[in-house]
Structures are given as C-alpha cells and as structure tokens.
Amino acid sequence: MATVRLSFSPAPVHVRTARLVGVAVARRAGVREDLLDEVRLAIGEACTRAVALHRQYGLPDPVLVEMSDAGSYAVRVVDRAPIEAGIGLTALPPDELANESLTDEALTTGVGFALLAGFVEDLQVRPVDEGVGTEVRMVWPVGR
C-alpha cells in the first residue's frame, strides 16, 4: 500500500497543487484515464471547501490530503473546522440557483457539494475520529 500525504496552509493558491498531486497519484495507482478529470475536480472541490472553512473560522492549521491505493484509490481531505459547519451540505435545486436572495457563499457551497456528489460514487463526509474537524472521503476503482 502506497500512501502519499500532503498538508498545506489554507490558501486558495495551494488547491491547484493538491489537484495536481491527487491526479498524479491516481494515474500511478491505475485509475482509468477517463476518470482523471473527475478525480481532479472532486479533489479540488473537497480542498476548496476545507480552505473556505478554515478561512471562515480563522484557522491557520493546515488542510490534510491523504491518498492511498490499497485495492482502490482512496483520498481523504481533512479540515479542522467545527463539525456543525461541515456536515450541513446540501445540493440546491435549480430554481434556487439563480435566486436573488441566495448569497454567493451559499451558492458556491451548494454547487460544490453537487459536484462532489455527482462525480464521486463512493463519497463519505463524516466527523474526524479524533479532535475537531470533518473528513471528506472519496474512493475510485483502480485497474483497467
């Protein structure tokens, strides 16, 4: 089992790095080429969400991304924000997306979750085992 861990300070500029690493490890693990765009987008969304939460709560702690390829390609993105902030993710219905009263933050969060749920068949969002925070866990099959 190969594991790659990446932790980065919660700044938007580093999300691209996390995407690049995530896709490189996915390719190495044997994830099908036609899934790599989805892997890239999903890792980006999970990291964007974590960065937004850290900034919202003024947390300087790093965001952790862990990639492993034990039988499948599993990616965990861990934030350290209070749990009640992380779990309440909902996708928005289309008639609400262009609603005038919807804030940009709420829209982006809703759209981000729709992308995660739409692109990742095996997706879990749950409290971390120890301490404060939420873990977004995504799994893709490997092998051709």
């Binding site: 980006g44 964007t48 262009a98 005038e100 982006t108 981000g112």
Partner: peptide, 20 residues
C-alpha cells in the same frame, strides 16, 4: 480546461447582476 464551483459561482453572480 478547468472550472470549479467558485468559478460557477462567479458566473451566476454576473447572470444575476445583468438580469437586474
């Protein structure tokens, strides 16, 4: 070659502003 939820949010913001 890459578009995420933040980019989509910006596009929706422009749509709303122009409609108004």
């Amino acid at each position: 070659d890459f578009l995420d939820s933040t980019g989509l949010g910006v596009l929706v913001g422009a749509l709303k502003r122009l409609r108004t």
